[in-house]
Design a protein around this nucleic acid. Structure first.
Lengths: 212, 212
DNA sequence: CTCGTTCATGAACGCATGTTCATGATGAAC
DNA sequence: GTTCATCATGAACATGCGTTCATGAACGAG
């Protein structure tokens, strides 16, 4: 088929390069990036096997762009505004953050599963403009929220915003990882009871009230 | 070479089956289980390529046994007793648990990296006698410790032992995972400051003291 | 000594995957 | 209308992997 005719069939507004990335993103969202084959992507995109080499240096470059696009899509799918300091209660806001972070990690971590096997893809990812390395955006956002509440006097000044963020993100990693390593286990949508207990522990600690 | 002569060269006390597992464990500890090749293991064990099929059904069975042995070795390497309720302070004990869990996860998680790609290995692992599935032993051990302290009145009765365990283990996953996905980042030995802040957050919470 | 059994050996096989390339259809340039 | 550059095509190639198997060496039984 001719190049331009094929492009017309896809809708001229999308270059074949973007079309390939989109196909890879669909597969990544469905099965993760681990076992993905060049032929899988070509079939999903309904193009010939070798096409990607007309638009990318190799499979790794396409994969890096697709992972990047997937992360942006997941973040963009987050509807609504994150909680802001001073609104509602700290506990409710922390809970909202935990649920947001859980949703994001549940969508992103499986796509990254097995990626530590492919250091070259990770290196390519690091080259891309957006910030994936050095922790996720939600982390610093959450730390910023805690700092804001400290400014308003609704959170103890001695508390460490970074520690809170690490604890919240860690819970997400724990729940998602548990599901990844044991798919028969409960999906990473913990019971509301556990979420409430986690947040309550963060807010009130475990020391006896008398001990301060 | 003759079977018995080869066994003698290895030291007769070790069957070739165990010798293969030991070789695989060495490689797993060094590079993880992800890219491991049948030929890699054979070379490490200094035997012929096809040997493992005389002692295991396939590569996955050997890998499952090796991962199992690796986990047991890591746990056995944990020297000393875990903290017990009533000793020292709750804060110091939590810190000790966090450091133990961090060491264990730093040794185990990389070995499991990319394993979600290989569901059959995971299934084989689940068949083995020991408990890997359903969370790590440290988790329930830590929850048990918290319950013990509650019995002694050193931890608030309202606190959830499971939540504490999830938070501690989650921090470990977070730190190790961050290093796995970005090897240039700091290794999973966080500054003592961060550890102290994490434990302090767990113990005291972040609410203003006046709010109780 | 002879036979049979065990089992390490490593070359060879089949398969899957990443990558290349000669081919040819298409539209733009003049 | 002719020429030319573009680029999708998919068969073919090279590589690396898990696995098999005919071979032969060593040992025990009789």
């Amino acid at each position: 088929m001719s190049p331009r005719r094929a492009a017309a069939l896809r809708g001229g507004d999308q270059s074949l390069r973007e079309h390939l990335i989109a196909a890879a993103v669909r597969l990544i969202a469905r099965r993760g990036s681990a076992g993905l084959t060049v032929r899988d992507i070509a079939r999903e995109a309904a193009v010939a096997d070798g096409v990607l080499y007309n638009h990318f240096a190799d499979k790794e470059e396409l994969l890096a762009h697709a992972l990047h696009a997937h992360v942006r899509a997941v973040e963009a799918a987050q509807e609504g505004e994150p909680p802001r300091p001073g609104e509602r209660t700290v506990e409710a806001n922390l809970r909202a953050y935990l649920e947001r972070a859980l949703a994001v990690h549940a969508a992103i971590l499986p796509a990254f599963a097995g990626l530590s096997t492919q250091p070259k893809v990770l290196a390519r990812l690091a080259e891309l403009p957006n910030p994936l390395a050095g922790g996720h955006g939600l982390r610093s956002e959450l730390a910023g929220y805690v700092r804001g509440e400290q400014g308003l006097g609704r959170v103890a000044p001695a508390a460490s915003p970074e520690a809170v963020a690490t604890l919240v993100v860690g819970v997400c990693h724990d729940l998602v990882l548990g599901h990844l390593l044991d798919p028969t286990s409960a999906p990473p949508e913990p019971s509301p009871g556990l979420v409430a207990e986690l947040v309550a522990t963060l807010v009130h600690g475990i020391a006896r009230p008398a001990d301060g």
